[in-house]
Write a protein that binds this DNA or RNA. Structure first.
Lengths: 210, 210
DNA sequence: AAACTATACGAACGGTCGTATTATTAGTTT
DNA sequence: AAACTAATAATACGACCGTTCGTATAGTTT
């Protein structure tokens, strides 16, 4: 049985992906509000109407952009860490891949979600709600990763509390790197805080992954 | 000798202060880019031209808004802490006044500088530069406050490292409170992290300020 | 070949933006 | 009272915004 593909849909999907690829880059620098349909059309040499047709509204474009960023984030941050087996090693790997994701500028404006969350944190609507959802999903993932290390007997800590602290180090390094571009040492500072925090929570005899 | 005051200048200054008061509130929610001259004029029932004349350009309005926010921040966060004598007590007071400043919503959108710094972190120009300057000024103040506690023999730590960590807790609690408005416990979580971190760095025999 | 569908274009709409120019009003100085 | 100055208003301009609509083109189905 042969699978028939509709060439028109394929072409449309490809355009949509190209548009969203540019959209996440623009939004990570200029925000989801600075992201405009006209600008997308101009930079990609498409028509405004054509771009608009893919989304139907500005808000839907913004939501689609956040969803696209989420996929990129999952690939850049979560997947590499999940290649490491559960335990303290994975907690460390998650931290490393997060800092690397920020430092490598997977998004040119640093962490997409930190930026978008601040932009929409004090507003109401679908974009705020979705960002809150993604944030909770992320925090839950960090807590879960920590909980695994506790189950493995490698760590002794309150997962929620430790997740809060690690996440705070990530975001703070990210923001500082944006504000003081010269200060390349900020990521090492964050690494040191993470190491010290994990070391103090590690159970005696646990091999440290760094 | 009597000081003569020009009533026109007084009136102008007052209008300017009213405008900037509204401006910081708008910007803390909708960003410095979402802050528009037309919107300011409408909400304050002034003319666009009249508002514009006070600043001469959008960028100058933005810079004046950040300066105004800095004054409010100094009053809400720094001054209360500086009423406490130098040492661990002042470090703790600074943390408390920061969290209180965020939780009380001195700016309706949470911490003005976290928001504005993320908005302009990845851009170039005078606004970014000034925000970077204010940020460095703030970090230096936290480090200095920590250094005082070390000098007083109450704390043993790397001031820059500890300042990074405390500041990370502040910002992270602020963002979480915006994204998950229901989670009122987030500030207590931050407090707990701060206490634990200061406790582990306090020298033996030091009275803990909480 | 005809009917249908999906993508994309191009022009236009009303609205808001920042900015500039020109008036008007209020207050000061002489 | 006249001349001057500062604050504010009124109006207009060009650019861009999101959105709508009619049309052309490319690909599929019958």
């Amino acid at each position: 049985m042969e699978t028939r593909v509709d060439g028109r849909l394929v072409r449309g999907d490809q355009t949509r992906r190209i548009v969203l690829g540019k959209a996440v880059d623009i939004a990570s620098v200029d925000g989801l509000e600075g992201l405009s349909i006209g600008r997308l059309a101009k930079e990609l040499e498409l028509s405004k109407g054509g771009v608009f047709a893919h989304f139907g509204s500005k808000e839907e474009l913004q939501l689609a952009t956040v969803r696209a960023a989420r996929r990129i984030y999952a690939e850049a941050v979560v997947e590499p860490a999940f290649a490491v087996e559960p335990g303290l090693g994975r907690v460390w790997a998650l931290s490393e891949s997060w800092l690397d994701y920020s430092e490598r500028r997977v998004f040119p404006g640093g962490c997409f979600f930190a930026k978008a969350s601040y932009e929409y944190g004090a507003r109401v609507g679908a974009v705020h709600d979705y960002l809150a959802e993604v944030n909770q999903e992320w925090i839950a993932l960090v807590e879960q990763t920590i909980a695994e290390a506790i189950t493995a007997g490698e760590l002794a800590a309150d997962p929620a509390q430790l997740a809060f602290e690690l996440n705070a180090y990530y975001d703070s390094a990210n923001l500082a790197s944006l504000l003081r571009a010269d200060d390349g040492a900020i990521y090492d500072r964050a690494r040191q805080s993470i190491r010290a925090r994990l070391e103090s929570a590690a159970t005696a005899g646990t091999a440290l992954p760094w």
